[in-house]
Design a protein around this nucleic acid. Structure first.
Lengths: 283, 283
DNA sequence: TATAAAGTTCCGTTATTTGGAACTCAATTT
DNA sequence: AAATTGAGTTCCAAATAACGGAACTTTATA
């Protein structure tokens, strides 16, 4: 084992990553690479494996150009082609992602803590990271009968309708928070979804003071969750932990009993972050 | 001519990635994209997050060029930069891989079968796919709550020292099988590792006739496994399933009792493949 | 503080990508 | 069976993005 000389990645601060998380296609600022990634995105996000013509109509590129781009992606193993000439994401992506995931210092550091939280609550626990307007789930420990194992790892959800998402939003400086609130492409998933910037921002004060945010079946009916944010812009990483449970088994009032456990977990991860990642920083 | 030295058999749904396997770094034939991917590879495979100078010495590129390549990768979210200027793979990889994984037709099709196999045996079950000289684990169902959840998905191991790997090798035409056997970079992981082409090929006949291969603690001491291959070159996909168990609890003789279950699972997946992937590659 | 090393920017040159059109192949229509 | 359509692939002059050397700025070290 090498000494953990790294720091976790930054989701929001830092460099030029204006990237629209929501799903809007952006104009490539990144030259050739950006164009290739745009094609890969379309292939990866498609419901059903697209064929050449599907891509041609989705992507504004001449036939010859698009064909070469795809050929390059295939040659690199980023895309595979089926017998019927439809395209699917390649195995190389899995391999790359596996490497990045299993070596991610922040995840490794947080794992024992969320495992402990899972043991204490008996419910599903998530670890999420802020990335643009989304939360990306970095780890998950499921309760019991795990129907789909890693259904969530690597998945992304909007910030405005998830427990961790709102907790992370509340950690931002107010202007940044408001700016993002105005950028969401709000969808009213359920009755309780906060579907306007006003509704969302109204909850921020409460979250900021208590350190806790709730998902009151705002994203999926029947699913509740309690979450806490951790990290912060100074640390370069904004993350969150949550405990999720089914509404039929756990009432809104009952979620409150996990408040201190969730907060303790968040604080414990932060203190590990300082201990492990701190010495290196030099600002 | 395009002369993509690799290319060739296109597979049904998430088929194989031709070369790449071993770990050797290849000369980019793919223009700009290839160069960018080479940088990404170095970052992803590094033990510890490399800094600019580390990359500069590993990759034969002038400073300015390398810097721009990294900048592009960062702008695309494929790489993140830490506070200390070291580089780690970006979250976008996770997101892309999650999409590709959860939408992979073959995995979805195989999942109920390996789940059943897990229920029947009570032990850890793997689903692997052949990619070059490696097996890439596409899914895994673990016994109980073991320490690391998805430790294996997306990970790669050499074909010659794993149960699924040997089972898949045995499905190849003999010349292809022998060709690959001579290409491995053999490492004697344990006492029982088959560490020469001769030892490996000697086992092939037996595997071919029985349809079953064993890992007799050949990769990791204390870990046994029984595996069967499935698919084939005609179907464009070569895969395998295995049941893994700890040597202290399960003797070599006891593994045999799972033989028919493992074979049944492989046959069941194959028959689903024909039904689902045969006429149309998609649902 | 001085000095070296690491990281970043600039810009003329060079090589790759581009995009339109022509071509092949297979399936469908007449 | 021949013709037509549509999908996928190849080619090459022109356009554009990448290259790479050197200068510049910041951070670490003596």
């Amino acid at each position: 084992m090498d000494s953990l000389s790294e720091e976790a990645e930054q989701g929001a601060s830092g460099a030029q990553t204006p990237d629209g998380a929501g799903g809007a296609r952006r104009k490539p600022q990144t030259g050739t690479l950006g164009k290739a990634m745009e094609v890969l995105d379309v292939i990866a996000l498609a419901e059903t494996p697209p064929r050449f013509t599907d891509l041609l109509s989705e992507i504004d590129q001449p036939r010859g150009t698009l064909h070469r781009q795809i050929s390059n992606l295939i040659a690199e193993g980023l895309v595979s082609v089926n017998a019927d000439h439809s395209y699917v994401p390649g195995l190389r992506l899995l391999k790359l992602a596996a490497r990045s995931w299993s070596g991610n210092t922040f995840r490794l550091l947080a794992e024992p803590h969320i495992r402990k939280l899972h043991d204490e609550t008996g419910e599903t626990v998530h670890l999420g990271l802020m990335s643009g307007l989304e939360v990306i789930y970095l780890d998950k420990i499921e309760s019991k009968q795990t129907v789909r194992m890693h259904s969530q790892v690597g998945n992304a959800s909007p910030l405005y309708c998830t427990g961790v998402g709102k907790a992370m939003l509340a950690m931002l400086p107010e202007d940044d928070c408001a700016a993002r609130a105005s950028q969401f492409d709000y969808v009213r998933h359920t009755e309780t979804t906060l579907y306007t910037p006003e509704l969302l921002l109204a909850e921020m004060a409460e979250i900021r003071s208590s350190g806790i945010s709730y998902d009151r079946e705002e994203h999926e009916p029947g699913i509740r969750c309690i979450a806490a944010g951790l990290g912060g812009v100074e640390s370069g990483i904004i993350a969150g932990v949550s405990v999720t449970g089914p509404a039929f088994r756990i009432s809104q009032d009952e979620m409150v009993r996990w408040k201190s456990l969730v907060l303790e977990t968040a604080r414990a991860i932060e203190s590990d972050m300082e201990a492990r990642l701190g010495p290196r920083s030099q600002e």
